[in-house]
């Protein structure tokens, strides 16, 4: 389902905002000409990515420092060594499709 989430004017380059779409909390932002949107819960242990940091095209989680590509969702940095076993495992960031119509940004939440 498509949700209206923001106006294009709200999105500044290399930064993001935190919005709700239905029951889902979304981080949405802009990097160059591209708009990105992902679920605000870190796929590692559910940390609040809206309090994270954008580094290039990666989001860094404030809880444990995991980094994910904001366009593909893939983890790019797992800062814990293998001795942490299953605790360090992570899935991918949940990425949402976006579209812009009449300067309004919509996000697709399945």
């Amino acid at each position: 389902m498509w949700f209206k989430i923001a106006n294009v004017a709200e999105l500044k380059n290399s930064s993001f905002i935190y919005k709700k779409a239905g029951n889902t909390h979304v981080v949405i932002g802009k990097l160059g000409p591209k708009i990105f949107a992902f679920d605000s819960r870190c796929p590692h242990k559910g940390g609040p990515l809206q309090d994270g940091t954008i580094i290039g095209r990666r989001i860094k989680c404030p809880w444990h420092g995991y980094e994910y590509d904001i366009f593909t969702g893939k983890p790019t940095l797992i800062p814990y060594p293998p001795e942490y076993g299953n605790w360090r495992k992570t899935g991918n960031l949940i990425i949402y499709d976006v579209k812009v119509r009449s300067k309004i940004v919509f996000v697709n939440i399945q």
């Binding site: 242990k45 940390g47 809880w63 444990h64 814990y80 942490y84 076993g85 299953n86 605790w87």
Partner: peptide
């Protein structure tokens, strides 16, 4: 309990 421990929001305090 093993699954529980792996879910912990904080890393093991080794």
């Amino acid at each position: 309990i093993r699954k529980f421990a792996d879910m912990a929001a904080c890393p093991d305090a080794y």
